[in-house]
């Protein structure tokens, strides 16, 4: 019972992080068919926005010094601004390009952001302490769970519910859903393309900032490479969930979190370092079984 509860909380909190990152990618893919490889670098950018730019080994808090009620909206705004700025600088000029060209340019943009971070902050990972008290364990259902895990699970549920409300109940949400369904048709019917796309990027950037806050608190490290790993998992989640499907992205995020926690717990010790290899093999297998993903959005069917 104890271990089961422990595993459940581990899986749910890891899955929550993956789900949020995957949502950020799925939102943009839905609206403009862009596979945004720069998303992981938005996350890294937000983590580094917490500390003062310098190549010294010791990190000095910058935004991170603000109290939580100020820091959270501030960082979400930073993430949104970064994403919107990248849309203005790069993707706006590629509206008519093929999805492949957009994918490669986002890969290039991610590379630029990563190397810019590397040049400003240096390559060594830095220790940062953001809300260390959140890592103290509390006892829930016989399992000892860090407070942060509970917060992550709650935050994910709030974000997903909030996003669902936004998409279902507001005008911009309706426009986004229309744009995700059929962008050209939506424009003909008076959907404001620029507003929708800017909105999607802002939301996606804010989600990246939320992931950044969680990762910074959980790991206590700022590392230039931290965006890459989570981005890869998030991509895989969006593909397994069905490209462009938001519920699919969330479900697949939780699924991948659960599978990787289970692999970590039950793989033989010798094989544990290879956990990710097993995980990605399962991913390819799952794609073979359901090539369109778990949830197929109606926009994904090819038109002839």
């Amino acid at each position: 019972m104890n271990t089961a509860a422990q595993l459940f909380f581990d899986a749910a909190s890891l899955g929550g992080i993956y789900a949020m990152a995957a949502l950020g990618i799925a939102l943009i893919f839905g609206v403009m068919n862009l596979v945004n490889f720069a998303h992981g670098q938005y996350i890294a950018f937000c983590v580094f926005a917490l500390i003062v730019p310098s190549t010294d080994a010791v990190a000095v808090m910058f935004l991170g010094r603000a109290p939580a009620f100020l820091l959270i909206p501030l960082l979400l705004a930073v993430g949104a601004a970064a994403a919107v700025a990248s849309e203005y600088a790069v993707f706006r000029h590629l509206r008519k390009a093929t999805p492949v060209a957009m994918m490669i340019s986002s890969f290039a943009l991610g590379f630029v952001i990563q190397n810019a971070l590397l040049a400003t902050y240096g390559g060594r990972p830095k220790a940062i302490s953001l809300w260390p008290e959140l890592n103290t364990p509390v006892t829930v259902m016989g399992a000892s769970v860090p407070l942060l895990q509970l917060i992550v699970i709650l935050a994910t549920l709030t974000v997903v519910a909030g996003l669902a409300l936004l998409l279902k109940k507001t005008r911009i949400g309706l426009e986004m859903r229309a744009a995700a369904e059929n962008f050209t048709m939506a424009r003909l019917l008076g959907v404001r393309a620029n507003v929708v796309i800017t909105g999607a990027f802002a939301l996606s950037g804010a989600l990246a900032a939320a992931v950044a806050l969680i990762m910074a608190t959980q790991t206590g490290v700022a590392d230039v490479r931290m965006g890459g790993q989570i981005m890869l998992v998030a991509f895989i989640a969006t593909v397994i969930g069905g490209l462009g499907s938001l519920p699919g992205a969330v479900a697949a995020g939780f699924l991948i979190g659960a599978v990787s926690v289970l692999l970590q717990a039950y793989l033989p010790l010798d094989a544990r370092p290879f956990r990710d290899a097993f995980l990605y093999t399962l991913v390819i297998v799952s794609l073979l079984v359901r090539p369109q993903g778990l949830f197929v959005p109606s926009s994904a069917k090819p038109r002839v």
């Binding site: 593909v239 990710d276 990605y280 093999t281 991913v283 390819i284 794609l287 369109q292 993903g293």
Partner: peptide, 20 residues
């Protein structure tokens, strides 16, 4: 067996497998 973009992401998964 996958189509376009899904195949690209799967090649990414392959890269991660080899790297790991």
């Amino acid at each position: 067996r996958l189509s376009g973009i899904a195949a690209s992401i799967a090649t990414f998964a392959f890269l991660a497998i080899v790297y790991t």
